[in-house]
């Protein structure tokens, strides 16, 4: 298994991990008790997806790194997550729009990964596809409620769209790593997921009385290890206990 394949796996795994880390921030602080439960549920699912893929990436890499070594002992430039998921929670509108843009990608990605030539990845993806379908129902429901709710919620959704839209397209930009993974039958080409994503996102935004912004310059680099300023702070918090006790078991 080549480095490109491991790298391709980390791109998905890290995106799930960083999103889970962000979502845990709502636990105990959500607008309603039902959302504390729902967001914790989504976080648990994406954390589970991250754990499965990180473990598999470690096995394929064959350098003795398990899920925790990969999660806790890499620095920001070694993370391969989408820039979108490292963006701060902001208000509930930002969190839900970020989630919706991610979920609309995930529902395209996982069914493709379910036919990966790697049976472990295919297994993880089969389960994740069902989870993502539920997550999308939840996040799209909130985008609609907030977009077409009150004047204030509409205004907040517009602000979140302005902030997050430039990060939405990175998931569909191909590079050599993606092409190698696609050739090996391990993962779909990112660009192949764009049409489905776009159709879904446009439909939900329209239903939500929100504009579909024109394609901007898509901010990019997360999948190659060049992140926004947000990631190092997120990792510093996530990794602090693990790194303070080198070699300890937990």
């Amino acid at each position: 298994m080549g480095d490109h394949e491991v790298e391709a796996l980390l791109r998905v795994a890290d995106s799930c991990l960083v999103l889970a880390q962000r979502l845990t921030g709502w636990c105990g602080h959500a607008p309603a008790l039902e959302e504390d439960i729902a967001l914790a549920n989504v976080a648990l699912d994406v954390l589970g997806q991250a754990r499965g893929l990180l473990t598999r990436a470690g096995e394929l890499e064959a350098a003795g790194r398990d899920e925790d070594a990969l999660a806790y002992l890499r620095d920001a430039p070694d993370f391969r997550n989408l820039l979108l998921v490292e963006q701060p929670n902001g208000d509930f509108a930002h969190t839900m729009l970020r989630q919706f843009l991610f979920d609309a990608w995930a529902v395209e990605l996982w069914p493709e990964l379910a036919s990966s030539t790697d049976p472990v990845i295919a297994g993880i993806a089969g389960k994740a596809a069902k989870e993502a379908a539920y997550h999308l129902r939840h996040s799209a429901g909130w985008v609609e409620r907030l977009g077409d709710g009150t004047d204030e919620s509409h205004r907040r959704m517009l602000a979140s769209l302005e902030d997050l839209w430039p990060y939405a397209g990175e998931a569909f930009l191909d590079d050599d790593v993606d092409r190698a993974a696609a050739e090996a039958g391990l993962a779909p080409l990112p660009s192949s997921l764009l049409a489905g994503w776009r159709a879904r996102v446009e439909a939900v935004l329209t239903e939500s009385t929100l504009p579909v912004p024109p394609d901007p310059w898509w901010q990019r680099g997360g999948r190659q290890g060049r992140h926004t300023e947000q990631l190092t702070r997120l990792l510093a918090e996530m990794q602090v206990v693990h790194r303070a006790y080198p070699g300890a078991r937990w």
Partner: peptide
């Protein structure tokens, strides 16, 4: 401690518990 759980397994356990 959710954001700082020292292993991913512990993070999942704690998250499920708080949920």
């Amino acid at each position: 401690w959710l954001s700082r759980a020292p292993s991913l397994r512990r993070k999942g356990i704690l998250l499920a518990k708080v949920q």
